[in-house]
Design a protein around this nucleic acid. Structure first.
Lengths: 210, 210
DNA sequence: GCTTGTGAACGAATTCACAGCT
DNA sequence: AGCTGTGAATTCGTTCACAAGC
């Protein structure tokens, strides 16, 4: 089970494969082969086989991959067999959208705390949760045993909140604020920049029209 | 001006450099060097120089890069010196959040149409725009000369809307729906999957706790 | 002296092609 | 016969290290 030296790029494709497999499960297909998965994901079969081979010998030669077993295995590698406790910081429009996004809950991510600094929002309801002041950030993070923090806060305060989250023992951060965060090596960090994608598209437009 | 063979990875970093440069401009710094940019972006200086060298000889040896000039040049390569006309499809929570996101307007992306299929929303106001029925999709896309379509629609209808957008002459699509879209080679496509990032973080958590 | 721009070295990821199993 | 798993080949991207220029 050589989980450690799985290439970064492979890890990023695992959620994609998982989605394809869940579709196959939905369609009551017991088995799929690498060509099927590749078609559903927009990659090629060799890539799929190579990626899956990093996780072990999961297929059967001459047959393909057992859908149920492969779902279980990928879920296990991604660490989503257990619920992951998530806190959302910043209940603006984006924060609210993420909080109500079913895709998170479906993949085993459970929102257990919502923070905001706006007194008008503190104490109000957000889904099944009550909005908490960022004054109580560390205390609630520890109390709720939060593993992942999602930041949708204004750029200026985000690094500081990240630092506090790290100090409170949070081990993973998903940042939507348009700033480059610095965190210790031991903390996993993903930065999502929504306007980057538009700019990349714009580049291709500029190419196309010469 | 060898814009064509700029590596994909470099293109993805250009928005990052641009943001750093805009910060430097804000701070009234006339010149920055590759070390400065690297620090602001969390990369290394060699990477910055190599990336920028793909766009031409933009720096001055012994000095660095002129902030204003470099902003202008990167903006030009990214094709955001002109306004880009964008349409949003699907005015759910995520759609609303994106519509009100200042980061888009700041980078030259102008929302010129908003679509939804919900009769309750059609005709209502969204920012300065009126929500239009997807029945009128093609007509309005052409009339408004839309270049980029952002899809935040339910998975099931998304491919179909993408096809219609392509048929209406749209040349770039940003897809937030959790489906893999198929579009012609000539159309630029970016897929954003919000739950992928959480799953990648979860993988690292699973690693950490062994 | 300082900093860019870039060939060359290196490393990582993808693709190929086929041996090995069912 | 069919499909996986994987070394080998290739492509792609990053980093090094230094010559060229201010």
């Amino acid at each position: 089970m050589p989980r450690t030296d799985v290439p970064q790029t492979t890890i990023q494709r695992l959620p994609l494969y998982l989605r394809a497999l869940l579709q196959a499960e939905e369609a009551r297909r017991p088995v799929v082969n690498s060509v099927d998965i590749a078609e559903m994901c927009g990659t090629n079969a060799a890539q799929v086989r190579k990626d899956l081979s990093y996780l072990g010998e999961l297929g059967t030669r001459g047959i393909g991959y057992d859908v149920e077993a492969l779902i279980a295995h990928i879920s296990s590698v991604l660490g989503i067999t257990q619920q992951r406790r998530v806190a959302l910081v910043g209940l603006g429009r984006l924060g609210s959208a993420l909080l109500s996004y079913r895709g998170f809950a479906e993949r085993g991510f459970e929102a257990v705390a919502v923070f905001d600094s706006d007194p008008a929002k503190i104490g109000s309801r957000a889904g099944s949760l009550t909005v908490v002041s960022t004054d109580d950030f560390e205390a609630v993070l520890e109390e709720q045993d939060v593993e992942i923090v999602i930041l949708t806060t204004p750029a200026g305060v985000t690094q500081q909140l990240a630092d506090r989250a790290v100090a409170a023992g949070v081990k993973a951060i998903l940042n939507f604020a348009p700033v480059r965060l610095t965190v210790p090596e031991t903390v996993a960090l993903r930065q999502v920049c929504l306007s980057t994608d538009l700019q990349v598209l714009s580049f291709h437009l500029a190419q196309g029209q010469q």
